[in-house]
Amino acid sequence: MKRKITLKVNGKEHEVNVDPETPLLYVLRNNLGLKGPKFGCGLSQCGACMVLYDGKANPSCLMSVENATDMEITTLEGLVDEEGNLHKVQQAFVEEQAAQCGYCLNGLVMASVGLLKKNSNPSDEEIQAALYRNICRCGVHPRVIKAVKKASTS
């Protein structure tokens, strides 16, 4: 049964008419047109659907839209500032060429941003621990670690 639900996404309030049990990922992509978070496994195990809930990186594929109503949600698109400048983590990923096929990119960036919000100067081990939920089959993790280190110093 559909009902009106208000979400705060990327600093703006959005009203959607959906079943409250709909996964947040589906609402972000299908109702709000945000393509940063991607469907990967649907089990919160791969990281492709990662978003920030109140500044903390978490998967969005199993979170119901109803449970997200009291959170400030940030997607990959919300990291870019009003002038169109990339977030320092996004810029560091570009500079370090920390992407290959790009499917995992959303999750890696969002997990990195979440990490730097709570720890502005993480060690390699702390970066690896923050990225453990992100599967990348292309093997870019060494470049990702380098990018996160670069973003932490900028």
Rank of each mutant, 00 (worst) to 15 (best):
G47P: 00
N58R: 11
C104Q: 13
P20G: 10
T22K: 06
P59K: 10
L116S: 10
A151G: 04
G102P: 15
V80D: 01
G42S: 12
S64V: 14
L131E: 09
G11D: 08
C49K: 04
K149A: 00
G107Y: 05
P23M: 10
Q91F: 05
M71S: 09
A151C: 06
V16A: 02
E21N: 14
F93P: 00
Y53V: 07
G114D: 12
Q100S: 07
K38G: 00
I5V: 05
L43I: 12
L108Q: 15
K8H: 14
L7C: 03
A147C: 07
N17W: 05
M63P: 12
R133I: 11
G84R: 09
K150L: 00
F93L: 00
L115N: 04
K88N: 02
K146D: 00
Q91A: 07
F93S: 00
I145Q: 08
K146R: 12
A48W: 10
N17V: 11
S123L: 12
V148C: 13
E96S: 02
Y26C: 06
V51C: 06
G33F: 13
K12D: 05
L43S: 11
P59N: 13
N85E: 07
K56D: 13
L79F: 09
I135M: 14
A99L: 15
D124W: 13
G78M: 06
L79P: 05
A98F: 03
E77T: 00
Q97A: 15
A57D: 10
G40V: 08
L86S: 05
D54P: 07
Y103W: 12
S60C: 06
L24Y: 11
C101D: 08
V113Y: 14
M71E: 08
K4G: 12
G42W: 11
T69F: 07
L52R: 02
A98E: 11
G40P: 06
V148Y: 15
N31E: 15
G84N: 08
N85C: 03
M50N: 11
